[in-house]
């Protein structure tokens, strides 16, 4: 009886949501009916010559890294601030690995190094094909960081050279802002796509979008790797 009531409630809620989504009338600030105008413009955007974002074959990427690139810069900053907070809380001048309570056997030690390469390669592939296929800088960077996590978990003496990650992270973030300022110089506004768009579907197309996605991938990967290192080390007292 209880299950039946729950099912009924879920069905009712679903019908309510679907009905309410079917006639959503949107009004702008002057009270005019603008239903479906903005989203249809994004969805039906044709890749013409006068279109500023004509290169990317992937409509999601053209929104994330072109129309709303400033927003993405903000997301990167959020990630940077959170990793900074973790480093402030858990970091220190001299650190050593936490004792995981087990020692890896031969197979785990060698096999994790072999798997590391495959996972890293997948992450890099997803990152540099971000403007053509689903994926992009954020998932690719998370994959790069997960390969580091595998090395950390499989070997309790492993420690990455974390200083290199910190430098890479700063350089990638600064380059992102520099590309934005270059957009101000060579074109009209901050983070505008000023490079040649090329042919849709090529690896080297879509102007600055693949550049930005590679930078995002490097930054996200190195940041999350730094967080992993902070969580799995402790300060030497």
């Amino acid at each position: 009886m209880k299950n039946f009531l729950a099912l009924l409630a879920a069905l009712g809620l679903g019908v309510l949501i679907i009905l309410s989504l079917q006639n959503n009338t949107l009004f702008n600030e002057y009270g005019e009916d603008v239903t479906g105008r903005d989203s249809e413009e994004y969805g039906d955007r044709e890749y013409g010559e006068e279109n500023p974002a004509s290169g990317p074959a992937n409509i999601v990427t053209s929104i994330v890294a072109d129309f709303r690139s400033f927003d993405t810069l903000g997301e990167i900053t959020v990630l940077f601030v959170s990793s900074l907070g973790v480093a402030l809380l858990l970091g220190g001048t001299k650190q050593k690995r936490l004792d995981l309570g087990f020692h890896p056997n031969f197979m785990l030690r060698i096999g994790s190094k072999a798997l590391f390469g495959i996972i890293l390669m997948t992450g890099v592939y997803v990152t540099i094909h971000g403007h053509l296929t689903p994926g992009g800088g954020f998932p690719g960077g998370a994959m790069i960081a997960s390969s580091m996590l595998l090395l950390y978990l499989a070997d309790d003496t492993f420690r990455a050279k974390i200083k290199g990650f910190k430098i890479l992270e700063s350089v990638a973030g600064s380059l992102y802002v520099l590309i934005g300022i270059a957009g101000l110089f060579f074109a009209d506004y901050f983070l505008e796509n000023f490079l040649n768009n090329g042919v849709v579907g090529d690896l080297l197309s879509a102007g600055i979008i693949p550049l930005i996605y590679v930078l995002i991938g490097l930054k996200v990967g190195s940041e999350i790797s730094g967080v992993i290192d902070n969580f799995l080390t402790e300060e030497v007292v």
Binding site: M107, S112, A114, L115, I118
Partner: peptide, 24 residues
Amino acid sequence: GIIIVFIAISNPIGSSVLAKASYK
């Protein structure tokens, strides 16, 4: 082929580590 190589390495290692952890 790459996925097959990945599974061929990861599946035995994961299960052997699981078995040893459970024995421990």
